[in-house]
């Protein structure tokens, strides 16, 4: 088995299993060994995914706060391939502010959002992407807020790589994740996903009916067309690579990082060693 040996805490039928398989496929077909990857997550069912991966480095931090840690890790060690996995509640709700700042910074990391339009770990509250009018255990009168549109927001901010995919189509999922990781610069992938236990509206069947692959002549470098595409939802949800704008990443332009020795190698005596402190407090 490819996994870490931990008991998997997801419900049978959870969309996360397909994501776990896809991630393993990407890792197994990568030129890099698994320990060159750092997976960073927040809190939620999605955030558990890195715990189930064998051989990679993992930092599972606070709800909504995967991005500060992920960016910092990449800045400190540009040789790491840094990938964030967390849910729509974590990345678009609790961590929404960090998403905006991270897109602007264009640090070369990949962000995979498990978008199941619900807060699953906490058992069914509406998330930022829940459709208006949906009733939940917490929103008994139906959601009264306009949903957050992550791909349109990202394109509006000129995010370097924006894609949407669906966990029900393995090949599409794998190739989209792979392209996002390969992309140089900040890459956002919104992965539509079912939540078999707590989202009875956006079921696997519902997604299958509503998703539409982008046409073959679609130009992801046309920002206005991409933005229009990103606004489509009711009449069909476009999936694929919506927008690409290649440009230098944060590490290429920052004077302290560009062409310099990696920060983690610049160890000086002034830096406090953590080991004695950890032993004392253990």
């Amino acid at each position: 088995m490819q996994n870490s040996g931990m008991d998997i805490a997801w419900c049978p039928g959870c969309g996360n299993f397909a994501l776990l398989d896809a991630v393993n496929r990407v890792l197994d077909t990568s030129d890099l060994p698994r320990n060159h990857f750092l997976y960073v997550s927040g809190i939620g069912q999605a955030a558990k995914l890195p715990h189930y991966l064998r051989g990679v480095n993992v930092l599972d931090g606070l709800h909504g706060r995967a991005l500060p840690a992920a960016q910092a890790a990449k800045i400190a060690n540009g040789d790491l391939t840094v990938i964030v996995h967390s849910g729509d509640g974590c990345m678009y709700g609790e961590g929404g502010n960090h998403l905006l700042a991270a897109i602007r910074r264009n640090v070369d990391i990949t962000v995979i959002v498990h978008d199941n339009q619900v807060y699953g770990l906490t058992r069914g509250q509406a998330s930022p992407t829940t459709s208006m009018g949906t009733t939940t255990v917490a929103q008994t009168l139906g959601v009264m807020l306009e949903p957050f549109n992550p791909v349109a927001t990202a394109i509006a901010m000129d995010c370097s790589f924006v894609a949407r995919t669906f966990m029900g189509i393995q090949d599409h999922l794998v190739s989209t994740i792979r392209a996002a990781i390969r992309h140089h610069g900040f890459a956002l992938v919104d992965v539509l996903q079912n939540c078999v236990t707590f989202n009875k509206v956006n079921t696997f069947g519902w997604y299958r009916e509503h998703i539409r692959k982008l046409p073959d002549d679609y130009d992801p470098r046309n920002r206005i067309a991409a933005f229009k595409t990103a606004l489509q939802w009711e009449d069909g949800i476009p999936i694929g690579t919506l927008y690409i704008h290649e440009r230098p990443a944060y590490g290429d332009i920052h004077p302290a990082l560009h062409d310099k020795q990696p920060l983690w190698q610049q160890w000086t005596d002034d830096v406090i060693r953590c080991e004695p402190l950890l032993e004392e407090l253990a």
Binding site: M6, I43, K48, V58, L59, D60, G61, L62
Partner: peptide, 14 residues
């Protein structure tokens, strides 16, 4: 393996 939630010696959530 670094974790925030309550975890065991291996660093995995428990």
């Amino acid at each position: 393996m670094i974790d925030s939630d309550e975890h065991d010696e291996s660093g995995h959530i428990t």
